[in-house]
Design a protein around this nucleic acid. Structure first.
Lengths: 226, 226
DNA sequence: TGTACATCAGTGAACGCGCGTTCACTGATGTAC
DNA sequence: TGTACATCAGTGAACGCGCGTTCACTGATGTAC
């Protein structure tokens, strides 16, 4: 729970200079994401992508140096967009006026919604590739860092002897629970129950007070994820 | 948290009938696991495997119908072995005489050691393939199921209004934390600190009593993972 | 113990497919005067 | 407005590499009498 995140990693492509080629690029990106979600990483071939996008291999290589670059670019796009939404979600509210209880509730909600909104991509690319995860790790790092700061803002209310450690462990625990629920194929807990349990868990760990949720703040308030 | 796990899935190969070919098979398995850990799933090709194993493609296809079968077989081997160790670990002790506190401590230790011992394989194959995870999911399911039963054996000490749910969520949270720690490349928490925090977290969630670890049972007691 | 035969095990050159990538070419858009 | 030229965009046949897989063959081990 320190400094900033690893290297930026450009993910550079030859930028389109006309509207026409920008559209082609967008079609290629869209086709790639679709293929990733339907057929997984193995099904993602350059030929299939350009066929689905109604383009051609030549056009593809006019933008990207190779397939590798496509993967980088996709990750970059998906996660920077997620990051933007995330920042909006954080800035929407003045967290300093809230109690720890409320911060926990808000954090848990944000975390759940953020992960849920990317679950398709997660399943397709990140849980499946094991290499192209840089952008995701960065996003995940930002989530944990941002929420960690929020929670540590309520430091006086945290009774755990090592608040930094507690926040780090506690957030990871919740993130793990959320990921597991998202991956689950059956008996999936609905969002609000999940949020309530995660809140109880985190609050109990931080303060030693695990009383069940008093009065939910209202979950939709935090919902900025399509 | 119910019934038993999905379909068995045979992962059948043409069994060796002489010592010589059994040895060859073992060399192929060992070489595959090594390649998986050093070069990842992409680096695992039949030619490389047999070269590293000091065998030949013909020998390979005498055992396996194809590469797909190798993956199945590897997963089967790794996780059934893990499962056997796991069962030994469970049966080593009479859990019914322990308090909830002790059961939590023991469970947490088992979970951590089980996951840590497989972390290389997890990184190489399961977090990287996204398809061959059946065997791992089965193992993971057994972990959660077995520990869930243990914890629910102390049902009276659990104050959470829905003990089944609490156990399920709580265990997933810990598993998530452990996975995250294993994946971490820097600032990795040492095993005992991780165990202590996980214990506090789980116990607090289940009972509302998050007092820091009174007296560790002795972590080595549960250590059956090389 | 020896001989004949069947089965098991191992070898590596060869094949073919699919993939990523290149390239010579045509067409569209922008710019200079 | 028109003409000439440069740059951008797009096309798809072709190439070559690496991979999974096959196959004809040699050698080792087991079995029957």
């Amino acid at each position: 729970m320190e400094g900033t995140i690893a290297a930026p990693k450009p993910a550079q492509i030859r930028a389109p200079k006309q509207l026409r080629s920008r559209r082609t690029l967008e079609r290629i990106v869209a086709a790639s994401l679709e293929l990733l979600e339907t057929e997984g990483l193995t099904g993602l071939t350059v030929h299939k992508v350009v066929a689905k996008a109604g383009s051609s291999v030549g056009s593809f290589y006019a933008r990207f140096d190779g397939k590798e670059d496509l993967l980088d670019y996709l990750g970059e796009r998906v996660w920077t967009e997620a990051l933007e939404r995330w920042e909006v979600a954080l800035e929407t509210r003045d967290w300093s006026t809230l109690s720890l209880d409320e911060v926990v509730e808000g954090s848990v909600g944000l975390l759940i919604d953020a992960q849920r909104s990317r679950s398709d991509y997660l399943k397709a690319l990140d849980w499946a590739s094991g290499r192209q995860n840089d952008a995701y790790e960065r996003f995940r790092g930002e989530l944990l860092l941002g929420l960690g700061r929020l929670l540590l803002g309520q430091r006086k209310s945290i009774t755990h002897p090592d608040p930094e450690l507690a926040v780090r462990i506690g957030l990871r625990a919740i993130l793990g629970t959320v990921d597991a629920e998202i991956r689950a194929t059956e008996d999936r807990l609905d969002r609000d129950s999940l949020a309530a349990e995660a809140r109880t868990l985190l609050l109990g760990y931080l303060t030693g007070n695990a009383s069940p949720a008093a009065q939910p703040i209202g979950v939709d308030f935090f919902d900025v994820w399509g």
